[in-house]
Computed example of a mutant assay.
Amino acid sequence: MSSSSPQPSTPPSGARTGEKVGRTPNCATLQLCGSDTGRDRAPRTAVAYRGVPASLATSANWLINLGDYGLADRVARDLKGVVVRYDGQ
């Protein structure tokens, strides 16, 4: 009888570089960028839709798109990032 040791749990698909975690507009969506180009493009892509406001916390190689717009300041402060806001206009 062989015993198998438990395998480490697989991180959510969005935990990998270049993918996103989160699926609804009311949650926080984390995006990890694998390159400088991806990092520069991520905020532009997040605010590209007219009429869709966005509040982002970002730094280094990550971007968090927050459905709770008031939370962006706190997240950015706690993670030593900055806030990017787009009012949808």
Score class of each variant (00 low, 15 high):
A54G: 12
P25M: 07
G81M: 08
R23N: 05
G81W: 03
S35V: 05
L71D: 07
V75C: 07
N61S: 15
G51M: 01
A28W: 04
D40P: 02
Q7S: 15
R85G: 05
R74A: 12
D87M: 01
V75P: 08
G14P: 02
A76Q: 06
T17W: 12
G14Q: 02
P43T: 01
D40F: 09
T45G: 02
P6E: 09
M1Q: 07
Y49V: 13
T17S: 09
S59V: 09
P8N: 09
T10Y: 02
P12A: 08
S55P: 13
S5H: 06
S9R: 14
K20C: 12
V47R: 04
V83C: 03
G51A: 08
V84C: 02
G38N: 04
S5M: 10
Q7M: 15
Q31Y: 04
S35C: 02
L79S: 13
V47A: 02
G14T: 03
G70N: 09
W62V: 07
V47L: 02
L71W: 06
Y69I: 00
C33R: 04
G88I: 03
L79Q: 12
L79F: 13
D78L: 06
A72Y: 13
L79I: 01
C33S: 10
V84N: 08
V82A: 03
P53T: 07
S5R: 06
Q31M: 06
T29A: 11
C33L: 02
Y86L: 01
A28Q: 02
G18V: 11
Q7D: 14
R74W: 14
R85K: 07
D78C: 01
C27L: 04
A72S: 15
G38S: 03
M1N: 10
K80F: 00
K20Q: 09
P6R: 02
L30A: 05
L30M: 09
Q7K: 14
L30H: 04
S59L: 08
T24L: 13
V83T: 10
P11G: 15
D40Y: 09
A48G: 08
T37W: 02
D78G: 00
V21E: 15
R16Q: 12
A42N: 00
C27T: 13
A28P: 08
V47F: 03
C33E: 05
T37C: 01
R16Y: 14
W62R: 05
G70K: 04
L30Q: 08
W62H: 04
T29V: 10
D68M: 12
K20E: 04
T29Y: 05
